[in-house]
């Protein structure tokens, strides 16, 4: 960041010319020039500006130090270590041999499990969530209903984790409310083939449960972007509601919808806590990483957790790349 700045400060970009000119002007005219203008907004500034009154620009730069240092230490370095460690042997020599861990049968199975659970829960979550968004159309955004739905969605989508695992044990575990009810009413035992919840595919249920609210949060703005005038125009031209949906609303919403699907997928794919509370062994990639971190079990491969982390990150980066593409397309209609 610091190096990029220098040419840019010399020639400010078009958008900011006026305001930065103004700012510079007002700073110069200000009655208290002893405080370098840029210092104040940065209380975290390490204070290296005291004493001999350095030039204003360089002083303002120091304001970035705390944040930059923090992000480098706790985001950049760990991320690099996580990914790079997969390329080193136990002795610290560079190697590509560790990548063979990705072909280990248990690991392949873990990736398959993760993909299955994430894809199914993302699709289910997206469809149900979109229905909820549809139902919420036309309600007041500031109203109590929307406030409650938004709050509940945030809690379930982002706060669940271990607690949702408990909820599902109480629901469809061996003595869960729904399990007992189904057994008593229909004689149906959901756990007939072993505990449903403690299998990889059983994770689909809790994962869908936190995917739906996430869909509501991410898709609602797009739904609200549907302009009333489009519906009126279509109706004036004699379109039925079915035609309105298939010819106008759905094509407009499609990029946002698929973008949200990707987001839901990424969310399910990377979530760990619910699975950790339910399953003791692997079955999905995050749990496999946990296993490899605690005891490396793949023969002949060092730092296998790093290799798995790399595999996960590659998938996430691909997903987020397509997400941003779709997001850009979707944004066109939201102006």
């Amino acid at each position: 960041m610091t190096t990029r700045s220098i040419p840019e400060t010399a020639s400010p970009t078009v958008g900011s010319v006026v305001s930065s000119e103004l700012r510079a002007g007002s700073a110069r005219r200000s009655p208290a020039p002893r405080t370098p203008a840029g210092r104040a907004p940065a209380p975290g500034d390490s204070g290296g500006t005291g004493g001999s009154r350095p030039r204003r620009r360089s002083a303002a730069w120091l304001g970035f130090t705390p944040f930059a240092a923090y992000v480098v230490l706790f985001l950049a370095i760990p991320a690099v270590i996580a990914v790079a460690s997969g390329f080193f042997t136990a002795d610290g020599a560079f190697t590509l041999a560790n990548l063979s861990a990705l072909t280990d049968p248990t690991i392949v199975k873990a990736f398959q499990g993760s993909l299955l659970v994430s894809i199914v829960s993302a699709l289910l979550g997206a469809v149900i969530g979109a229905l909820v968004c549809f139902a919420l159309l036309g309600t007041k955004a500031e109203g109590m209903l929307r406030t409650v739905v938004d709050a509940a969605s945030s809690v379930l989508a982002q706060f669940g984790g271990v607690m949702l695992a408990f909820a599902f044990i109480a629901t469809i575990g061996f003595h869960g409310v729904v399990t007992l009810w189904l057994k008593d009413t229909f004689g149906l035992d959901v756990n007939a083939n072993g505990a449903l919840l403690y299998q990889t595919s059983g994770l689909i249920i809790p994962y869908t449960y936190f995917s739906v609210p996430l869909m509501v949060l991410t898709f609602m703005p797009a739904m609200e972007g549907l302009k009333a005038t489009w519906g009126e125009a279509a109706a004036t031209l004699g379109a039925t509601r079915f035609q309105y949906w298939t010819k106008i609303a759905m094509p407009v919403l499609a990029p946002a919808f698929f973008g949200s699907v990707l987001l839901l997928f990424a969310n399910s794919f990377s979530s760990f806590a619910t699975a950790a509370a339910l399953l003791s062994q692997g079955g999905i990639v995050p749990l496999a990483i946990k296993q490899q971190l605690t005891s490396e079990t793949i023969v002949g491969v060092a730092n296998s957790a790093g290799v798995l982390a790399l595999g996960m990150l590659v998938i996430m980066v691909v997903i987020m790349f397509f997400y941003s593409l779709l997001q850009r397309r979707a944004a066109r209609w939201q102006r």
Binding site: G161, L214, T218, S271, T274, Y323
Partner: peptide, 16 residues
């Protein structure tokens, strides 16, 4: 933008 500034692209953190 949503009224509650909900973090829109919010994967990962939910259950992590």
């Amino acid at each position: 933008e949503p009224r509650i500034p909900l973090p829109t692209p919010t994967p990962a953190r939910s259950a992590s």
